[in-house]
């Protein structure tokens, strides 16, 4: 009851620490756990971002407003559009998704080697980076050679916008991966430049793990993207 409680001493949620008890300033694994959690949350955010495009795809396809989901050549000519084919290049699409998948596999390999504290994690990580950039390049070539633009109906709009934002997401992830590779290369080249870092791998491992997890997830979104835009 309130009246009784008012007479009681207030107390503290966290009592004073007894003398001699040493509590470290911050548990050493806090940063690693924060990165790990953040990468998972980022997966959630990315899912909902691309979900908007997936929803748009199926919604616009199902209503097929004025038959403009995939307009015919005649319709496009009526709209004074010069392009007539709305089929994306299957070969380039396949190259794109293969690059993504191979890049992820190499990234997982790098992460695994890092966990085994093997120094040989760098080559697969660099390979993952190159293939990731390769996927972006393949899709950019597709944008250049395809015979339709974003104004050629609803499918064309979804295709161009969805893939463009997916490429931006890949580039962001490649940047994340690159920072790990660059840190390791710099540490090997100039150990003194790392100040008080006794073990650079301890610094890189959690971040690499988080980046690889996110990249794997993004590749999953990439597969859904590929199936939806190229195969359906």
């Amino acid at each position: 009851m309130a009246s009784e409680s008012e007479s009681l001493p207030l107390g503290r949620m966290a009592p004073p620490v007894p003398a001699g008890l040493d509590i470290p300033p911050e548990p050493p694994d806090v940063g690693a756990r924060a990165l790990s959690v953040a990468s998972r949350l980022l997966c959630g955010a990315s899912t909902f971002f691309f979900l908007a495009f997936l929803f748009a795809y199926f919604y616009l396809r199902s209503i097929n407003q004025d038959h403009f989901w995939l307009p015919s050549a005649a319709q496009l000519k009526e709209q004074k559009e010069l392009h007539v084919s709305l089929k994306p290049d299957q070969a380039l699409g396949a190259v794109f998704i293969v690059c993504v998948v191979l890049s992820v596999l190499l990234a997982f390999l790098a992460s695994r080697r890092m966990k085994q504290q093997s120094q040989s994690w760098l080559p697969p990580a660099i390979g993952a980076l190159v293939l990731g950039i390769g996927a972006v390049a393949a899709q950019c070539i597709e944008f250049i050679v395809q015979k339709f633009g974003p104004t050629d109906g609803a499918f064309a709009s979804v295709f161009c916008a969805w893939l463009a934002f997916y490429l931006i997401a890949i580039l962001g992830t490649m940047y994340w991966l690159e920072t790990q590779v660059a840190t390791e290369l710099r540490a090997r080249r100039q150990p003194a430049a790392h100040g008080d870092i006794r073990d650079p791998d301890r610094l890189i491992a959690p971040s690499l793990d988080a980046a690889v997890f996110y990249w794997g997830f993004l590749a999953g979104i990439g597969i859904v993207t590929y199936v939806t835009l190229y195969l359906l």
Binding site: N64, Q65, F68, T151, A154, A161
Partner: peptide, 12 residues
């Protein structure tokens, strides 16, 4: 001029 929300271009 994409057509996500423009009815005339196939959007909604």
């Amino acid at each position: 001029n994409t057509s996500f929300f423009i009815t005339g271009g196939g959007g909604s």
